[in-house]
Amino acid sequence: MEPGFLQLSTPSATHCHLHPLVMFQVLDHHTRRNDETGRVVGALLGSANADGSVAIRNSFPMNHDDVTHQDFGLFFNTMEALHQKVNAREHVVGWYTTTKSTDDDKDEVGEEDVALHSFFEEKVGEKHACVLVRVDCNIQRASKLGVSAFTSSNMSLRSDKTAPELVLGKCFSRVTCHIRAYEAERIGVDFITHNTIGQGGGEVLGTDLEKLESSMHKLMMMIDQSIQHVDDVLDGNVEADTKVGRALAETIAMVPEMSAAEFDTSFSKGLQDILMVQYLAAVTQAQISFWQKLQSMGA
């Protein structure tokens, strides 16, 4: 008779991409919780990519973290059905939890997470691994958000190759988690993080002209970096990278061909449109304020 052996399955998810919207939803859920609630949990929505990565784009909160409660499964099914009606491409890919107020700097999966992970793992299915994202919401004394992601593997025991598996438990392993944001999202994320995380803050979002000037400075900086990289490659100081070359070629191809005079005309028209919209918005705001003042005087 062959000796028994321990078998450990390997998770299929290699890494995950987390969008800032999910972070805001988690923090909002944590802020709105009851005072006696130590942590909050919720479901993560997204899709699995062909390379094994998982894109997390949305989430919805759960009413409590007691998976044995009779309303837990009913609440989950209702929320999942509502989200499927809005966006059928987003499926449940895992779940999130925040660290308890007594956990301090603890960043590991606890025993209370196993039952919840098993519940969401059943909902995710066998297409890809169920992702657990833990968020440290104690950001008052931190310089950045603490985010960690985990997947689980079943530890099973077999007496021989023909015997059924005896599942002993789950082994959680950390996976790489990157926060991915589109350029439009990054502007808002940078503004919020600069004003809320760490000491200081009080920065005021500038006017349209100030934002345009900032964008132009950023564009010039990126162009200078690209030119410097090309010069370094031509001089032999940096090894050529085909991916960077393709990205630069695609970027240049997207720029329309126009003369300096045509560019100045187009830029002036766009600037005049911005000023006109800003003027109309100011006039509308003044009329609304005047109407509200008249209403309050008449009352």
Rank of each mutant, 00 (worst) to 15 (best):
A247F: 13
F263M: 09
L168P: 01
F76T: 00
V93H: 01
R134K: 05
S266C: 05
T207L: 02
N63C: 09
D71P: 02
V244S: 10
G198L: 00
S148W: 06
Q70V: 14
E262M: 06
T193F: 07
D224P: 02
A88T: 06
T176S: 12
T196G: 03
E121I: 03
E112G: 01
Q278G: 08
R180T: 10
G125T: 04
V41P: 01
L157K: 11
S53L: 03
V189G: 01
M254V: 11
W95S: 03
H19S: 15
L219D: 00
S118V: 03
H15C: 13
Y182T: 05
I187D: 00
F75T: 06
Q228R: 09
E203I: 03
F75W: 09
S173M: 11
T265I: 08
F267A: 03
T251Y: 08
Q292Y: 07
A247Q: 10
K243F: 15
N77G: 11
A163D: 08
R33S: 15
E108R: 04
H69M: 05
A247S: 13
V238W: 04
R89V: 06
T207M: 01
L248C: 11
F76K: 00
D103P: 00
N154T: 12
L82T: 02
E239T: 10
D104M: 07
N77R: 09
L219W: 00
N237Q: 11
M220S: 14
T68F: 10
K218F: 12
G110D: 14
F60L: 06
D160F: 14
R134D: 02
T162R: 15
E239M: 12
V204Y: 03
V230E: 10
G73Q: 03
K127P: 03
F76V: 04
L132N: 02
S59I: 01
G146P: 00
A55I: 05
H69E: 09
H19C: 15
G146D: 01
Q7Y: 14
S59F: 03
T37D: 15
V109R: 00
T162N: 15
E90C: 06
D103R: 00
W291L: 11
R158Q: 13
V147K: 05
I197V: 13
S153N: 03
V204R: 08
K293M: 14
A299W: 11
R174A: 06
K211N: 07
F119I: 07
H91A: 03
H117G: 04
